[in-house]
Design a binder for these strands. Structure first.
Lengths: 219, 219
DNA sequence: ATAATAGTGTCTCTCAGACACTATCGA
DNA sequence: TCGATAGTGTCTGAGAGACACTATTAT
C-alpha cells in the first residue's frame, strides 16, 4: 500500500442565522493553538474513528462548539494547501449551515454571533471561507428556498419576504415575491395565522420538505 | 500539536471532452492496487512536498495520467468517509475538467474516452463522482459559457449551439441561442470564417476571457 | 439556378416588476 | 371610522421559443 505523508484534515463551518433581522455568522473563541483565544469559525479535525464522513464531522463540531443540532448543512468548498494552516499542509472541507435563532441554544462561553458586515480579522483563511459562503448563500437564494431555513418552522410570506431581501440585499416586489413563492410550491399553508396589530392577520406557512429546494430555471 | 490519525487524501478528476459530437469522460486503467487493471477516473494522492494545493494535484494527475495540459478545471465536491476506499478513511477532493478533443495529446496506454451514457462499472465511488460532475456541468451549462471549453479556441455559433444541445440534452432554438450568446457578450468575433460546403460561410468567434463565465440571472 | 447552411425579423407567450386596488383586523 | 398590514388584479416591458424570412456560398 502506498504511503505518502498525509495532509492535516479538518472541517470548518460557517453557521448563519438572523438576529434582529440581520444576517450573522457564528464565531467561536479558539481554545487551543494555533491562534488560541482568537475568534474563528468553529472547526476541528476529522475523527476517523468517530465520524462517518466530513458532514458528520461538521455536525459534531456544530453540536460541540455551538450547541446547534440538525441545522440545514451543505458542503461549501474545500480549501487546501501548504500555507493556510501553520501546522502544515492541510485540507479543510468547509460547510455552511443555516439555522433560526430560536434553535440556537443558550450561547455557550466564547461563542459570538457577528454581523456579516462587521467581521473581525479571522485566522487561517476563514475570512475567505466566510466570503465564499456568503457568495454561495446569496447566489442560491435567488433560485432556491434556502433563506427559509433561517426562519422558524412556521412563518408568514412577509417574514420570508424580509429574509430574502435581507440575504440578497435588494428590494423585491411584494406581489411578485408572493406569486413566485406560491407557484414554485416550496411552501404550504398550515393552520393558524399571525395576528400582530390593528390589521389583517397573516397566513402561516411552512417549507414543503417533499419538494426540491431549488426553483425551476431555464436557459 | 494535536495528533489525530489522518485520513488518506486523494484527488480524482472527471475530464470531459467531445468525440464526434458526443460527450465523453476520460478513464484510465489503474496501474496499482486497489482495483489494479480496472478503468477508473484518473486520480492520485496529494503530494504535500510537490503540490501547492489540491488544484495543483488535479493538474498534475491530468498531465501525468492523461497528457492533458491546462484544461478548464473546477473543483466539484469532496467525497469522504470510511467505506469509499478499501485502504481506509479517505477524503477525495473531486475536480472536473473540460477540454477540446484537439488538445488531448496522443492517447496514452490504458486511457480511454467513454461515452457518458455507456459508462462501465467503476471502482470506489467514481460512478457517483461522474454523476455529480455531469449534474453540475449540465446545470451550469444553462447559465454559463462552460460548454465553450469543450470546443477549440475558435468556433462558429452553430458549433457552440450544437455543443450546448449535446451537453444539456434539449433542442434550443437557433435564433434565440444566437441572441442569448451575443448579448451576454461571452464570445467575440475573430477574423476569419469557416467555409464548409455550398453555403454561406460562418463567422468565427472565441471566448471573451475578460468576461465572467456565468450569465446574468435574476430571482 | 439550386441547395445548403448562416444569420435576421417578428410574433407570441410567459413572467417579473410596478403599483393600485381590495380585505381584514384593532383601536 | 381610521390606519395598518395582508393579499389580489392588471398593466407593461424584457426575453425566450417558434418560425418564416433574407444572405451567401459551391456546384
Amino acid at each position: 500500500m502506498d504511503d505518502f505523508p498525509r495532509p492535516i484534515a479538518t472541517v470548518d463551518v460557517a453557521l448563519f442565522t438572523l438576529r434582529e433581522g440581520a444576517l450573522c455568522v457564528l464565531l467561536a473563541r479558539r481554545d487551543r493553538e494555533p491562534y488560541a483565544g482568537q475568534l474563528a469559525l468553529p472547526g476541528g479535525f476529522v475523527h476517523v474513528d468517530e465520524d462517518a464522513d466530513t458532514a458528520a464531522t461538521a455536525a459534531r463540531v456544530l453540536a460541540q462548539k455551538a450547541g446547534v443540532a440538525r441545522p440545514y448543512l451543505e458542503q461549501l468548498y474545500t480549501f487546501s494547501g501548504k500555507v493556510r494552516d501553520p501546522r502544515g499542509w492541510s485540507i479543510a472541507v468547509a460547510y455552511y449551515a443555516l439555522v433560526p435563532e430560536t434553535r440556537l441554544g443558550a450561547p455557550a462561553a466564547g461563542v459570538e454571533l457577528v454581523h456579516v458586515d462587521r467581521l473581525p480579522a479571522l485566522p487561517f483563511d476563514h475570512e475567505r471561507i466566510v466570503a465564499t459562503a456568503l457568495y454561495r448563500l446569496r447566489g442560491k437564494s435567488t433560485y432556491s428556498a434556502l433563506p427559509a431555513y433561517l426562519l422558524p418552522d412556521q412563518f408568514t410570506i412577509q417574514e420570508l419576504h424580509q429574509v430574502y431581501q435581507q440575504v440578497i440585499g435588494v428590494r423585491l416586489d411584494k406581489a411578485s415575491f408572493r406569486r413566485k413563492i406560491e407557484d414554485q410550491e416550496i411552501v404550504e399553508p398550515v393552520a393558524g395565522e399571525r395576528r400582530g396589530g390593528a390589521h389583517r392577520p397573516a397566513q402561516l406557512y411552512r417549507l414543503r420538505t417533499d419538494r426540491k429546494v431549488e426553483f425551476e430555471r431555464k436557459i
